[in-house]
Design a binder for these strands. Structure first.
Ligand SMILES: [Zn+2]
Ligand SMILES: [Zn+2]
Ligand SMILES: [Zn+2]
Ligand SMILES: [Zn+2]
Lengths: 137, 137
DNA sequence: TGCCATACGTTATAGCATAACACAATTGAT
DNA sequence: ATCAATTGTGTTATGCTATAACGTATGGCA
């Protein structure tokens, strides 16, 4: 169990949601929906939809994030994640490590751009690809 | 033909690359690889790889960008796109419009973060989802 | 001419995501 | 307690996205 000071506590989740979240919590890096499925076959999972439906809810609750550039998912590793509208990820292309961080200044600059263009901003995706410190050495 | 003050001129491209770029230039919004394929069947395209290989080169030349959150591709609509390492996109979820823009301040803030974490940054993805001005009215 | 690098064509396969239907469990009135 | 509405579930089938692995063709250049 990792830090989840989110609105939804662990025991408000359904069985499937809990299993999927546990799987992501236990994983060192991001997992695809299908690899989550494979890890949960022992628990009775049979079909991708069981995973996708749980993931949809977990993302809605802010407990899980989707990495667009990877078609994969990670458990949220941050407190107060929801307090900042915009989250960013750094993804190591060698070892798969993912760092989640926020930068309010970046968020504000993008919000300013949106305001100036009258673009009604719903969601912001920021993903940095590269090599983590361990992998550059 | 749109503005392409890039290193690779239109006539340095191979036939397949040219056809794919023309298709993206003509499109109003982003296109998936498969919809590009469908539009080029009349030109003799038969297989996804013909499209993906052309797209890979066009992205390498900076003439085309991939929208990660859409699994789709757009022709670059900016001069001097390559001069700024980091490009951002705003994508209207209703009409599909895509605006490409740069913001050096945002780019620098993210580079600063990477430097402070000793993360060797290779590529930055910034995608804003929401509603364009026309679609909010 | 022979070599190398790049592009191309084709078939097959792998990986990601959702539609549609039926059924069960939960909630929250009346 | 009963009913209706909502939410979660299981299952099958399907569609969309991307690449592997093979062979061939072409063009520049020693
Ligand atoms: Zn988070
Ligand atoms: Zn690494
Ligand atoms: Zn561009
Ligand atoms: Zn719009």
């Amino acid at each position: 169990m990792s830090v989840h000071e989110h609105s939804h506590e662990r025991d408000e989740l359904t069985r499937n949601q809990g299993l999927v979240l546990d799987t992501l919590d236990d994983a060192k890096g991001p997992l695809s929906a299908y690899s989550i499925l494979d890890r949960l076959r022992g628990e009775g999972f049979r079909a991708p939809l069981q995973v996708y439906r749980a993931l949809d809810k977990l993302m809605e609750f802010g407990l899980v994030h989707r990495l667009e550039s990877l078609n994969a998912f990670v458990a949220c590793r941050q407190d107060e994640c929801g307090a900042h509208g915009t989250i960013a990820f750094a993804i190591c292309e060698k070892c798969g490590m993912v760092a989640e961080f926020t930068n309010d200044e970046v968020a504000h600059l993008l919000e300013d751009w949106a305001r100036s263009e009258k673009f009604e901003l719903a969601k912001t995706t920021i993903e940095l690809r590269g090599l983590c410190e361990a992998c550059t050495a």
